[in-house]
Structures are given as C-alpha cells and as structure tokens.
C-alpha cells in the first residue's frame, strides 16, 4: 500500500539511477547514508517521526513525514550473486524452476 503524501513531505533525492543493490554496495547515494538514521527514533511508536530514508517507485526517497515504510537493508544479498558459485546440480536442487 502506498501512502499519499503532499507538499514538502517527500522528495526524490540523490542519483535517480540508484537502485537497491547499488545502495547496498555504497556505489551511489552514499551521501544519503552519512549521518542519516535509516529508521528514525520514534518510527516504532506509530506517529509521524523525523526524516527517514524510504523507497518509492523503486527510487530512494527522503520521506520527511515519517509515514512511509522505512528502508531496511536486507542482511545479506538477495540476488543472483549468492548462487552464482553453485554448480548445475546444486543450483537445480535449490531452485529447479529458477523463481
């Protein structure tokens, strides 16, 4: 579900070509992460909190309202890289239909 935001609540920031993987590897948007709490202190209390890094339309976005889901980097990578070292047998044992 996408929360409708208005006015100065939000702003697309940083390099618009930045994607999640690039964000994780620190190859773009690096300045966003410097000194910026990814999840603001009061976010868990339910009400609007301070600015936080979020994602919208697959782009990083600085959510000034605290209403969006904060971006939480996954622990570990979730792409093809972890399985790229597997041989054909181990890959097919893991995911015969590659989904």
């Amino acid at each position: 579900m996408v929360t409708k935001l208005t006015g100065d609540d939000t702003g697309i920031v940083g390099d618009l070509s930045c994607d999640r993987r690039a964000l994780l590897t620190g190859t773009c948007c690096g300045f966003l992460l410097l000194g910026m709490p990814i999840v603001p202190a009061r976010a868990s209390e339910g009400g609007p909190a301070g600015a936080q890094l979020s994602f919208f339309a697959d782009r990083p976005m600085m959510d000034q309202s605290g209403k969006l889901h904060a971006y939480r980097p996954p622990r570990g990578f979730r792409g093809g890289a972890p399985v790229s070292t597997l041989d054909d047998e181990r890959l097919r044992r893991l995911s015969p239909f590659m989904t």
């Binding site: 996954p74 622990r75 570990g76 093809g80 972890p82 893991l94 989904t99």
Partner: peptide
C-alpha cells in the same frame, strides 16, 4: 494498485535468498 501478500514466508530457500538472512 494493490500488492498484497497475505502470508509472508518465514524461511526462504529459493533463489533470491540462499542465506536465510533476508528481510
């Protein structure tokens, strides 16, 4: 206009997360 996963898996042994450490 709707993205609705009714039940989220607790363990994901598929291609996207072999570490089991995903979000």
């Amino acid at each position: 206009s709707r993205a609705d996963h009714a039940v989220a898996g607790r363990y994901d042994a598929n291609l996207f997360d072999t570490s089991g450490e995903g979000q």
